[in-house]
Write a protein that binds this DNA or RNA. Structure first.
Length: 195
DNA sequence: TTATGGATCTTCT
DNA sequence: GAAGATCCATAAA
């Protein structure tokens, strides 16, 4: 498949805007020449202010410094002793905001994803932030990589123009600032982690 | 069908 | 030393 990378300007604009624009786009991973890709169906925004849940809320640290970098970088962090999560850095340099990719709809490389995930059910391959990292072999090595330039991982335009409704709701799996309406997903998509 | 707890380890206090 | 932007198996209902 031929993937057309999004423009550099795609990553500009507010974090919420980018979070919404990411829905329907394709996350493309080139793993040793093998293409693994999926449509982004669920995202979550993490802001630079008034958002206690964001890693950036405590200020710049060794762990979260990529969030404070330029828009379009990949912020990958490790949590719960066993899981990685993948974020797209947004906003101005020095601000510390990002969009967490929460779920994908698998498109290409499904057999390889099944192998990495040790699962055969298509619907549970990438319907969660840690799951999609496992399925696409995303780990700390990709932290800080530039999605605007990297050939290992990038965001592409979807090949089909489609209409879908975006549902806005509160975040899940988190205790702080849980009332903020910063979670976005494609309505009635089977690969969203949770309704 | 929903509820609960264990896995497991990096980062920050 | 404690908590964590999660997942999954198992238990209860």
């Amino acid at each position: 498949m031929n993937y057309k990378r999004v423009n550099h300007s795609f990553f500009q604009g507010s974090t919420e805007d980018v979070a919404k624009k990411l829905l329907g786009k394709i996350l493309v991973r080139n793993y040793n020449g093998k293409i693994l890709s999926g449509k982004i169906v669920e995202t979550e925004a993490y802001l630079d202010e008034n958002d206690l849940a964001s890693h950036s809320a405590v200020g710049l640290t060794e762990r979260n410094k990529v969030m404070f970098g330029e828009a379009g970088l990949a912020y990958v962090y490790f949590t719960y002793g066993m899981h990685y999560c993948f974020n797209v850095v947004t906003g101005e340099e020095g601000k510390g905001s990002a969009v967490l990719i929460r779920a994908l709809e698998p498109l290409e490389g499904i057999e390889l994803m099944k192998k990495f995930r040790q699962k055969n059910d298509l619907h549970i391959l990438t319907n969660g932030p840690a799951k999609l990292c496992q399925a696409l072999k995303i780990d700390k090595k990709l932290n800080g990589i530039d999605l605007k330039k990297s050939s290992e991982i990038f965001i592409a335009e979807s090949e089909i123009e489609e209409n879908f409704e975006i549902v806005v709701t509160t975040r899940i799996g988190i205790e702080k600032s849980k009332d903020l309406p910063l979670r976005f997903y494609i309505k009635e998509n089977k690969f969203v982690s949770k309704k």
